[in-house]
Protein backbone atom coordinates (compact mmCIF):
# COMPACT_ATOMS: atom_id res chain seq x y z
CA UNK A 1 0.00 0.00 0.00
CA UNK A 2 1.29 3.40 -0.90
CA UNK A 3 1.06 6.23 1.66
CA UNK A 4 -1.89 8.62 1.77
CA UNK A 5 -1.30 12.38 1.68
CA UNK A 6 -1.45 12.41 5.46
CA UNK A 7 1.54 10.15 5.85
CA UNK A 8 3.94 11.63 3.31
CA UNK A 9 6.82 13.86 4.36
CA UNK A 10 6.28 17.60 3.86
CA UNK A 11 7.25 19.30 0.61
CA UNK A 12 7.67 16.09 -1.41
CA UNK A 13 11.14 15.58 0.01
CA UNK A 14 12.68 12.13 0.16
CA UNK A 15 14.12 11.38 3.57
CA UNK A 16 15.83 8.12 2.73
CA UNK A 17 19.28 8.78 1.32
CA UNK A 18 20.22 6.83 -1.80
CA UNK A 19 16.71 5.52 -2.31
CA UNK A 20 17.16 5.74 -6.07
CA UNK A 21 19.28 2.61 -5.67
CA UNK A 22 16.00 0.75 -5.50
CA UNK A 23 15.04 2.08 -8.88
CA UNK A 24 16.75 -0.35 -11.24
CA UNK A 25 17.02 1.35 -14.58
CA UNK A 26 18.80 -1.72 -15.97
CA UNK A 27 15.55 -3.13 -17.31
CA UNK A 28 15.18 -0.20 -19.70
CA UNK A 29 18.06 -1.61 -21.76
CA UNK A 30 17.73 -2.88 -25.31
CA UNK A 31 21.48 -2.85 -25.95
CA UNK A 32 24.21 -3.64 -23.47
CA UNK A 33 27.76 -2.27 -23.34
CA UNK A 34 30.49 -4.91 -23.47
CA UNK A 35 34.09 -4.19 -22.54
CA UNK A 36 37.19 -5.39 -24.32
CA UNK A 37 39.71 -5.29 -21.45
CA UNK A 38 42.58 -5.63 -23.92
CA UNK A 39 41.82 -2.23 -25.43
CA UNK A 40 40.91 -0.40 -22.17
CA UNK A 41 43.49 2.13 -20.97
CA UNK A 42 41.48 3.04 -17.81
CA UNK A 43 41.19 6.67 -18.75
CA UNK A 44 37.79 6.87 -16.93
CA UNK A 45 36.07 8.82 -19.66
CA UNK A 46 33.20 6.36 -19.55
CA UNK A 47 32.97 6.76 -15.78
CA UNK A 48 32.71 10.54 -16.08
CA UNK A 49 30.09 10.47 -18.82
CA UNK A 50 27.83 7.63 -17.71
CA UNK A 51 24.53 9.29 -16.66
CA UNK A 52 23.61 6.40 -14.37
CA UNK A 53 26.88 5.84 -12.49
CA UNK A 54 27.00 2.36 -13.96
CA UNK A 55 30.73 1.99 -14.59
CA UNK A 56 32.28 -0.36 -12.08
CA UNK A 57 35.62 0.94 -10.81
CA UNK A 58 37.91 -0.93 -8.47
CA UNK A 59 41.32 0.30 -7.38
CA UNK A 60 41.31 2.97 -10.08
CA UNK A 61 40.61 0.40 -12.81
CA UNK A 62 37.59 0.19 -15.09
CA UNK A 63 36.12 -3.22 -14.26
CA UNK A 64 32.96 -3.44 -16.35
CA UNK A 65 29.32 -2.39 -15.85
CA UNK A 66 26.60 -2.38 -13.19
CA UNK A 67 23.91 -3.95 -15.32
CA UNK A 68 21.15 -3.40 -12.71
CA UNK A 69 21.40 0.33 -13.48
CA UNK A 70 23.03 0.54 -16.94
CA UNK A 71 20.17 1.62 -19.21
CA UNK A 72 22.09 0.97 -22.39
CA UNK A 73 22.32 4.53 -23.66
CA UNK A 74 25.65 3.92 -25.38
CA UNK A 75 27.31 7.11 -24.23
CA UNK A 76 30.26 5.19 -22.78
CA UNK A 77 30.88 3.46 -26.10
CA UNK A 78 30.69 6.79 -27.87
CA UNK A 79 33.19 8.59 -25.66
CA UNK A 80 35.70 5.73 -25.26
CA UNK A 81 38.89 6.91 -27.00
CA UNK A 82 40.11 3.36 -27.71
CA UNK A 83 36.80 1.85 -28.81
CA UNK A 84 37.04 -0.63 -25.92
CA UNK A 85 33.22 -0.65 -25.48
CA UNK A 86 30.80 -2.14 -27.98
CA UNK A 87 27.02 -2.10 -27.75
CA UNK A 88 25.36 -5.44 -28.41
CA UNK A 89 21.67 -6.33 -28.76
CA UNK A 90 19.95 -7.68 -25.66
CA UNK A 91 18.34 -11.07 -26.38
CA UNK A 92 15.37 -12.42 -24.49
Amino acid sequence: MKETWKELPIGAIIKEPGSSKRFETGDWRTERPVLDPEKCIHCMFCWIYCPDSSIKVENGKMEGFLYEYCKGCGICADVCPTKAITMVREEV
Binding site: K2, L8, G11, A12, I13, I14, K15, P17, S19
Partner: peptide, 13 residues
Protein backbone atom coordinates in the same frame (compact mmCIF):
# COMPACT_ATOMS: atom_id res chain seq x y z
CA UNK B 1 19.74 13.62 7.96
CA UNK B 2 20.31 13.71 4.21
CA UNK B 3 17.28 14.44 2.06
CA UNK B 4 16.41 14.78 -1.60
CA UNK B 5 14.46 17.88 -2.65
CA UNK B 6 12.46 18.30 -5.82
CA UNK B 7 12.33 14.73 -7.14
CA UNK B 8 10.20 13.74 -10.10
CA UNK B 9 6.72 13.14 -8.73
CA UNK B 10 4.41 11.48 -11.23
CA UNK B 11 0.93 10.00 -11.29
CA UNK B 12 1.54 7.92 -8.19
CA UNK B 13 2.36 10.66 -5.64
Amino acid sequence: NPITIGPLDLQDY
